[in-house]
Design a protein around this nucleic acid. Structure first.
Length: 471
RNA sequence: GGCGGGGUAGCCAAGUGGUAAGGCACGGCUCUGCAAAAGCUGCAUUCGUCGGUUCGAUUCCGACCCUCGCCUCCA
């Protein structure tokens, strides 16, 4: 079997075959954040999903160029810059840094490229010029440039590749904002927005006057600039499928820059939403948690990461703090097993268990069935624990087990729990307690147990003697 | 209204035309001076409802009910 994914273009599971004739390089784009505020963990579900896909591609031997854009100019940002009397760069810099920090906390690999919309204005302008030259885009009376869906379709292109559209039945137009009525058709969308007084100092010069890019165009410009006019994979949250991704296709294919018969993107993948009490987690509903909220409650990035990748990416799933507690327990069991293996293995080196890796691979090959992959992991944990309890694991076997985990974890990205050994003076106390127990002075031994507990360490009495564990 | 998901044990969640993975919670047990921790173990005759196809359906078909998302900024 090979890696199979659900392609939103065909609405079916397809074998993943890269455009690269050598079958090695993969061009991968994921719509990144608009840095107007702290991202919430619903947003991060998508980015962790993208990280999982990227890691799995690398696990599968591909060389991935992973591009994630930073949208650093947009209506909300401009509004906040004005309100807070700051500059665009200063404002977006704060939230971009926070975003990258959070991404790191969630143990996501840094994308290969992090292009900024404001860094690609020239590319955006030249893409719009191509569209105007082909008569697919037009300048309106207010100086803005719009994309004409009618003209695009007139060229034999298809609008509505990712979603089935029925313009008659769509509610387009009910909520069109006042500044957009210079459009020829309600479904048309802005490529370039002319400068208005509220924009303050946020504007760029263009052949159509001062202004700024529309929302969708930067992804087309940046992805094609870095990955070429046709590339393999484009990811994003399911809410971006329409209109954002549909418009990206229209702009990119409308510019006519692809080789004959080639599409803008070969495979589109969309991640489902995170819910809170059955509703989409969103800023507007106010039912969101930022990663910082969760860290403040004592959870760790790897616990949140585990929770976010514990469910299949195409299924919505409910976020609860109880679920996060459960994630903590589950990871704890895994960590416990790993640390016991480590104690046994010492510095031995070994090769992974091929059977385990094969079962894991089979699960993920099937459209990234991560639930099934976790089942493989936890079945392995139980078997390992059984063997450990029966003293049936040799040092080389333990080392091989750890090597297997390292292989699996290159995809899961959980890493190992941070274990700092107990300070020396505590070991002395532990010895003293053992002596007291031997002498049946349980009053003394229990007092030491309490003292250690007060210092944040828990004694775990095992058949092989006591161990200290951080509370 | 159009389009697209989903309804599987207390909760989260895989899956298959042949009789239900995994995680959490809960119960039992082992270990222990007592605990704790840890580990093992048990835990859905049943997969929204009603029909149909079939030797056999949770899995296919039809109808219905409930629910979420997109159609507006949105991961």
């Amino acid at each position: 079997m090979s890696f199979h994914i659900f392609n939103s273009l065909s609405r079916s599971v397809e074998a993943f075959i890269p455009l690269d004739p050598a079958g090695k390089k993969v061009g991968f784009y994921c719509c990144g954040p608009t840095v107007h505020d702290f991202a919430h963990i619903g947003n991060f579900r998508t980015f962790v999903f993208a990280d999982l896909v990227r890691r799995y591609l690398e696990f599968r031997g591909y060389t991935v160029r992973h591009v994630m854009n930073i949208t650093d100019v947009e209506d909300k940002i401009i509004k906040r810059v004005r309100e807070q009397k700051t500059t665009l760069r200063e404002y977006t810099g704060t939230y971009e840094a926070a975003f990258l920090d959070d991404l790191n906390t969630l143990q996501c690999l840094p994308p290969t490229d992090l292009p900024h919309a404001t860094g690609h204005i020239a590319g955006i302008i030249s893409l719009i010029e191509k569209l105007i030259a082909r008569d697919i885009a037009y300048k309106a009376a207010d100086g803005s440039v719009y994309f004409s869906i009618e003209k695009y379709q007139g060229c034999g292109c298809r609008y509505g590749q990712l979603v089935k559209l029925n313009f008659e039945e769509m509610r387009v137009g009910e909520r069109v904002s006042a500044d957009e009525y210079d459009k020829q058709s309600l479904a048309d969308f802005a490529l370039w927005k002319s400068r208005v007084p509220e924009d303050g100092e946020v504007f760029w010069e263009s052949p159509w006057g001062q202004g700024r890019p529309g929302w969708h165009i930067e992804c087309s410009a940046m992805s094609m600039a870095l990955l070429g006019p046709s590339f393999d994979l484009h990811l994003g949250g399911e809410d971006l499928a329409f209109p954002h991704h549909e418009d990206e296709i229209a702009q990119s294919e409308g510019a006519g820059v692809q080789a004959a018969g080639k599409r803008f993107v070969k495979y589109w993948m969309h991640g489902a939403h995170l819910l809170v009490q059955g509703k989409k987690m969103s800023k507007s509903l106010g039912n969101f948690f930022t990663l910082r909220d969760l860290l403040a409650r004592g959870f760790t990035g790897r616990e949140v990461r585990y929770l976010l990748i514990s469910a299949h990416y195409r299924e919505t799933f409910n976020f609860t703090l109880e679920g996060l507690e459960g994630a903590r327990t589950a990871i704890g069991r895994l960590d416990e097993c790993l640390s016991r293996l480590q104690e046994l293995a010492g510095a031995e080196n070994a090769t992974p268990d091929a059977g385990l890796v094969a079962r894991f691979t089979e699960a993920l090959d099937t459209d990234l069935n991560v639930s099934a992959a976790w089942a493989v992991v936890f079945e392995w944990v139980r078997e390992t624990n059984r063997a450990l309890a029966a003293n049936g694991i040799s040092a080389p076997q333990a080392a091989s087990s750890l090597a297997s985990w390292a292989r699996l974890d290159s995809v899961l990205g959980l890493g190992r729990a941070k274990v700092d050994g107990p300070p020396l003076e505590l070991s002395a106390l532990l010895d003293e307690r053992q002596a007291a127990r031997k002498a049946k002075d349980f009053k003394r031994s229990d007092a030491i147990r309490d003292e250690l507990k007060a210092k944040g360490w828990m004694i775990e009495d095992t058949p092989k003697g006591p161990r200290l564990k951080r509370l």
